[in-house]
Design a protein around this nucleic acid. Structure first.
Length: 740
DNA sequence: CGTGGGCGGATTTTT
DNA sequence: TCCGCCCACG
């Protein structure tokens, strides 16, 4: 067999990892070092060189995207569809196991998956039912508690309250929540993992089967695994198994949601004979970017140790821009984007990265007025939209009448005269009988326990669901969906909304039918159940795919795994990035630093770092210090970009002053270095005494040196490096600077 | 039942 | 500042 397609595209380190003798392997793969390539080629190698059966391979990732890419690349290498390979996300694989072994796992056959929003609603309901004060017991925090326990593999029974009444209540709520889920036959995301773990742990037969089947377990992004994922992996691989683990401790950015970087270390303890491979050659970024990123991450302690290098050139320096405020920052970026595009670059090659989503707004406004097409990542995804979830709730009821969350969601949508009071009564009755809302509704109707109006309305709803179930039985999936949409009155409901949003919702519902039409169920679940699981586990692409050539805007977290020729790392101020809530805690700070490292290593050829000296945040202006991470970059790799001192305007009368209000604020200063034929107005004429390098005194900030002067007349501002307070931009008109 | 005003809170995100 | 949520009102 010709192995050269597998081996020839690899460098030495990659090849060593790919061809490592079968046994436990740990690959520390730096950013841009060909991690996915190693993983996929390893799979191909196992099959073609080691004679492993595709049947014996289990490859696990975190995102559906990564799983899809891996599958495609493996199939490309093997030249055949890898149907019998198990490749998927932790959650996807867990789901698959639970469907196959629902009985052993103690689940109803038709169990449904609760997404984050459903989970929150469920918890709110429980809190309300217990009449707990929602300001004391914040639903989101209670949910966080529950998920956190599950991530750690802990059931309520295993938890000690430590005589802490708050904790006792939380544990109680966890238990109540579990019971509610069991009654409704639903599992949340964390539950999928925990159940799958318990399934293997408690069923020797099942465990033996999968252990002997999956001789090769491969895990991507290992630094992101949480306790239960690790335990599950350990269980299924077995202590004499051959897990192939790929990760990068420097890119661990999900500690806050339960990820444990320590799992990399733990792996070395649990498999002391594991071979260690490091991939340090980077194929993405210039030498300068890598050097700076390496220098930054060196400030972290307890690293496994890794130094990225490239055989390519140094490239350009990293450029640093100290903006006056957040709008100036956006203006600067806008100009640099224009330059890039003017020189023939594509907009899709550009990424704006920021710490928190709220920062996108200023950029959006700037791009809108500059007519720069952009795309913001991170909005609501298709299957998370309200109208889609309404439709899914109907579909779920068809499949499982006891799904209380779905029942409540649509029992009166569209409005059919079933008010809060009726539902309250049903809830009450369901609680006392321990049944579902559906059962309570039937009981109430049989006993004539409701008023005539409510009774008729509720009866109508139950009948509707039964009718839809009967009417769609045996139909192809998309016709089922279509039928339910029409029959439920959902489409009509939104059609009546003449506003634009109604129209959009109808379109989304139609899109749901298309999604159903294009859906190819795998496995032997009924198509409808498979589709519902798909909707929950793969919430679909974010904001609709745009074909246009757009500037890419996203948080640093979202950017992980991506690369762009031109990257702007914005909002680099202490308190924003590193975030305020991480400033006082070393672990948190180190995670922020890793986040910065991730951001920097997204850049292929050019990296800009920007910060604003003044920023409007939550309605109030605040002055910030440049991020400490900026100070951790080697000076010789960073070039500070200064806005050019304002040049004479064509419309400014010679010798005259610019009209008030026509100053530089909100207007673009020219940034490019000296343009021929234009004469820089001496700073002197704008702001007497404010020559560059002049010494000045400020009432509050003390003494400093003028670094920069910009704008004219009332809008003029100066940048001063104060000895004690650092660099600040000041409005000349208000600053009361005294020349020295 | 649907909307508008008042209130509080405001990392990061995947499944 | 702005967004989402809750409640009160029409």
């Amino acid at each position: 067999m010709d192995l050269s397609p597998i081996l020839s595209p690899l460098n030495d380190a990659q090849r060593a990892a790919v061809t490592a003798p079968v046994g436990p392997v740990l690959v520390l793969a730096g950013a841009g070092s060909g991690k996915t390539r190693v993983l996929t080629h390893r799979v191909a190698w196992l099959i073609q060189a080691e004679g492993a059966s595709p049947h014996s391979i289990l490859a696990v990732t975190f995102t559906n995207k990564a799983a899809g890419e891996m599958r495609a690349r493996i199939e490309g290498l093997l030249g055949v569809p890898g149907g019998s390979l198990w490749i998927g996300t932790f959650h996807g694989i867990a789901h698959r196991l639970l469907r196959l072994h629902w009985r052993e796992a103690g689940l109803p056959q038709g169990f449904q998956i609760l997404d984050a929003e459903d989970q929150l609603r469920m918890m709110k309901k429980i809190l309300k039912a217990q009449q707990l004060d929602e300001s004391r017991w914040i639903p989101r925090e209670v949910v966080w508690f529950v998920n956190h326990q599950k991530d750690e593999g802990l059931r309520p029974k295993a938890l000690k309250d430590g005589n802490d009444p708050t904790r006792r209540q939380l544990i109680k709520l966890y238990q109540d929540y579990e019971e509610a889920c069991a009654r409704a036959g639903v599992v949340d995301f964390a539950e999928l993992l925990l159940r799958a773990f318990e399934l293997l742990r408690d069923n020797a037969e099942v465990l033996r089967h999968y252990r002997s089947r999956f001789r090769h377990v491969l895990v991507d992004e290992f630094q992101d695994t949480n306790a239960i994922q690790y335990a599950w992996m350990k269980l299924i691989a077995g202590s004499d198994g051959a897990p192939f683990i790929v990760g990068d401790d420097d890119q661990s950015i999900y500690r806050w949601r339960g990820a444990r970087v320590e799992n990399l270390q733990q792996f070395r303890r649990d498999w002391p004979h594991a071979q260690l491979h490091k991939l340090e050659q980077n194929y993405r970024s210039t030498g300068n970017i890598l050097k700076a990123a390496n220098a930054l991450i060196e400030h972290n302690s307890g690293r496994l140790g890794k130094n990225l290098w490239t055989s390519g050139g140094h490239g350009e320096p990293i450029r640093l821009y100290a903006a006056f405020n957040e709008r100036d920052e956006a203006e600067f970026v806008t100009h640099r984007i224009r330059d890039w595009v003017q020189r023939g670059g594509a907009r899709r090659e550009i990424a704006i990265l920021y710490r928190s989503n709220a920062q996108s707004r200023v950029f959006e406004e700037a791009f809108l007025s500059a007519r720069i097409p952009y795309k913001v990542y991170g909005g609501l995804r298709f299957f998370e939209r309200a109208e889609i979830k309404d439709a899914l709730a109907y579909l779920r009821l068809l499949s499982n009448r006891d799904d209380d969350a779905s029942f409540e969601r649509v029992v009166n949508l569209p409005t059919r005269g079933i008010g809060a009071k009726t539902i309250d009564e049903l809830r009450q009755s369901a609680r006392t009988t321990g049944g579902s809302l559906w059962q309570a509704a039937r009981l109430a109707l049989e006993q004539g326990a409701l008023g005539a109006r409510a009774g008729t309305a509720l009866g109508g709803f139950l009948q509707l669901i039964e009718q839809l179930a009967d009417g769609t039985a045996g139909l192809p999936l998309h016709e089922q969906v279509d039928h339910v949409l029409a029959g439920s009155g959902l489409v009509e409901h939104h059609r009546k909304d003449k506003a634009e949003r109604g129209e959009a919702r109808v379109e989304n519902l139609e899109e749901l039918v298309s999604a159903a039409r294009g859906f190819e169920p795998e496995g032997d679940l009924p198509p409808l159940d498979a589709f519902l699981a798909h909707a929950a586990l793969e919430a679909g692409e974010g904001p609709a795919e745009e074909w246009e050539d757009c500037v890419q805007m996203m948080t640093l977290h979202t950017a992980k795994g991506l690369e762009f020729p031109l990257v702007f790392l914005c909002g680099m101020e202490d308190g924003l990035f590193p975030h305020q809530r991480s400033l006082n805690d070393l672990d948190g700070l180190e995670e922020e630093r890793r986040l910065c490292y991730v951001g920097m290593t997204r850049a292929m050829s050019q990296l800009y770092v920007t910060f604003a000296e003044q920023r409007r945040l939550h309605g109030t202006d605040s002055y910030g210090q440049p991020s400490r991470f900026i100070g951790e970059l080697p000076e010789d790799l960073v070039e500070e970009v200064r806005p050019r001192i304002q040049v004479g305007r064509a419309w400014a009368r010679p010798g005259g002053h610019a009209p008030a209000g026509a100053g530089a604020q909100g207007r673009a200063p020219a940034y490019t270095h000296s343009q021929a034929g234009r004469r820089t107005i001496a700073a002197e004429s704008v702001a007497p005494g404010m020559r560059l390098g002049a010494r000045v005194r400020h009432g509050k900030f003390g003494e400093g040196t003028v670094l920069n002067v910009e704008g004219q007349g009332p809008q003029a501002r100066v940048q001063v490096n104060f000895e004690r307070q650092g660099t600040k931009w000041l409005m000349l008109a208000y600053a009361n600077l005294e020349a020295m």
